[in-house]
Design a protein around this nucleic acid. Sequence first.
RNA 1: GGUGGGUUGGCCGAGAGGCGAGGCAACGGACUGCAAAUCCGUGUACACGGGUUCAAAUCCCGUACCCACCUCCA
Length: 480
Amino acid sequence: MNLRLHDTATREVRDFVPLEEGKAGIYVCGLTVQSEPHIGHVRSAVNFDVLRRWLTASGYDVHFIRNVTDIDDKILTKSAEQGRPWYNLAYAMHAELTRALASINVLPPTYEPAATGTVPEMIELIETLVERGHAYAAEDGSGDVYFDVRSWPSYGELTRQGIDDMEPAGDADPRGKRDPRDFALWKGWKSSEPESAAWPAPWGRGRPGWHIECSAMASKYLGPAFDIHGGGVDLRFPHHENELAQSRAAGKPFASYWLHNAWITTAGEKMSKSLGNSLLVPSVLERVRGIELRFYMVSAHYRSHVEFSFEALDEAATSFQRIESFLERVPAGVVGDDLVGGSAGSPSTSSHTAQLPESFVAAMDDDLGTPAAVAVIHDTVREGNRLLADGGDATGVAAQVRAMLGVLGLDPADAGWTDGSGAEAEQLRSAVDVLITALLEDRAQARADKDWGRADAIRDRIKAAGIEIEDTPSGPKWSI
RNA sequence: GGUGGGUUGGCCGAGAGGCGAGGCAACGGACUGCAAAUCCGUGUACACGGGUUCAAAUCCCGUACCCACCUCCA
């Protein structure tokens, strides 16, 4: 079976056929770095990280580009409110984003271009559009340049909308537009804006419109035609529709497949900053570990809406701990080994699909069916636990589980999960281990003496400190 | 007005004509000094009303409710 993906443009699940055998080029619309990322933002990154890992596991040489938008209206507005330079706000929020993504083991992209770093390419593209008669400089002297939607007959093809059915923008400032639906490719500088937020261009100093940057960056790093373009559902229109129109109008075939992930909502609504800080990535990570948050996200299909709740998050964490505890009970050597095949760049990455259960592969190939894939992991864990209970050898099963988790970015032994506090945490852990071990020796003596009251009292005392004791054939084990 | 999506057991969450995905919780059993962990077992779920079919959660028609996008949005 081959990988099949849901393509928004055709509204169906289609076989994935790359432009070039064995290679996959992916462009994902990243964030506008204007505020701290919340868990809704990072879901998109996790979803596309899974796509990228699955393609890699399937033997593709993946070129993965995810941009950041570091200049736009909101950044200018917010930075002005906060009284700091716009580039400082964007830079700081970009750093926050990078940290948040690292904390949930999202691999760094092949490259992460920024809008401000691609201005010359955008200008070139706009010039091409003007030459071809699909864009025009506003006649009001504003320095704006607009895309002429009426000049492009297939405008609306991605979201199947007719121009005349679209609501004209309610707040549209008609300025120099020929049609209210024309969108800005270039925005002339205004005296109310910082001078640093403008670049020289044939139409006067100004800054890029929102959509043009992605067309320019995708073409620059992936070529005029590439395989997959991704982003959140809200980007279908206008952002992706406009990207498609301006790219094709400039003579580029653009993306073969359009993938869109659904939202995480809270209380039935989109997340927004007005809900407070409780869903910012760092605060959620005070409650569950990054690997548990990622498991929560991967447990739902990327095209399904997720109604966020802390209860469901806790439940996912418990569910994941079951998988982890199986791995921990398998004799050492398996968990520590790097058996998830090939560190980054190794040519033999495809070899590890060999140890993935067929049902797992089938689930992933079916439009990244991560819920079914997770079910396979649970089934395999149960099989392993059964072997363990019967005194059998579960190392092969554990290897399978780790291989599957690895594809989802959820292998607990993955170096991506060791956070910055590593050294200190390790010291703390070994100190606690010494203390707990001493208590456990007392308990063992009490149990040998059949002094159950004292044995249980010791266990209760340890438990009160938040540490669970588990008696195993190889002696008691503790975990937080 | 236009376009698209949804409603599944106590909860989360898949599936898309026939065999109850999986998890969490609960209950019973095994194991244990008691626990914990683990294993085994326990559920007559598909918004509502019709229809098609040997067979419908799944297809068709209708109804209700919810959500997203329509030029700031993951």
